[in-house]
Amino acid sequence: MLKNIYVIRHCEAGWQPAESSLTEKGLSQANDLANYLSNKNVDQIISSPYKRAIQSNRPLAEKLQLNIEKDPRLAERVLSTQNLVDWLEQLKETFVDFEKKLEGGESSREAQKRILKVVEEVQDNKTAIIVTHGNIMSLLINYFDRSFSFKEWKKLSNPDVFLLKIDGSKASFERLWK
């Protein structure tokens, strides 16, 4: 019951809102991703509905002639609906206290549960690509490797690619994008 899931953080975008597009550099990165992943025998592409995530995997989907399945559970985590001056410090605290929930936001535990559901639904013996955002991607990796924390989140790049291999009850993550 092997699952290979390439977990991808979207390419460079101009801003944070859901409708933000990739920059020119980000569009070039999307083509680089397509070239890098085109020989990985991908069966399925699942993406955050955010424009920057869709644009990040569109070249690959076209190359492989696969549909992009938009899944709102892969959307970026909302830390708070309030404009937080100390948002980075607040985010850091949510990597320590997974139950911490700011006004209008989602706890780390809640966000982690929703991305895990997507991973669980990938069929056995399939290779899938999940395109998402840095914070929720970090929470997924943290589920399988507790040492992956705020510090590692800060080191993520745009894009970034990890391979999650699940074989029965065993799982491993490997960073592929350098």
Rank of each mutant, 00 (worst) to 15 (best):
I46T: 10
I46G: 07
S47W: 02
S48Y: 06
P49H: 04
P49E: 01
Y50W: 01
K51F: 00
R52T: 09
A53M: 07
I54E: 04
I54W: 00
Q55D: 10
Q55A: 07
Q55H: 08
R58K: 15
P59N: 14
P59E: 12
P59G: 13
L60I: 12
A61G: 09
E62W: 05
L64N: 05
L64M: 09
Q65N: 15
L66E: 05
N67M: 11
N67Q: 14
N67C: 06
N67L: 07
I68A: 04
P72H: 13
L74K: 11
E76C: 09
R77P: 10
R77L: 05
V78L: 14
V78A: 13
V78I: 15
V78D: 11
L79F: 10
L79W: 09
L84A: 07
V85D: 12
D86W: 05
D86E: 14
E89Q: 14
L91N: 04
K92F: 00
K92T: 02
E93M: 13
E93D: 12
E93C: 03
T94Q: 14
V96A: 11
V96E: 13
V96Y: 04
D97E: 13
D97L: 08
D97G: 09
D97W: 03
F98V: 11
E99P: 00
K101F: 02
L102C: 07
S107M: 01
R109M: 05
R109Y: 07
R109S: 12
R109D: 01
Q112P: 00
Q112N: 07
I115H: 05
I115Q: 03
K117W: 00
V118W: 03
V119N: 00
E120K: 12
E120L: 02
E121V: 03
V122C: 13
V122K: 09
V122M: 05
Q123P: 02
N125K: 13
K126V: 00
T127S: 08
I129C: 11
V131D: 03
V131C: 15
H133T: 11
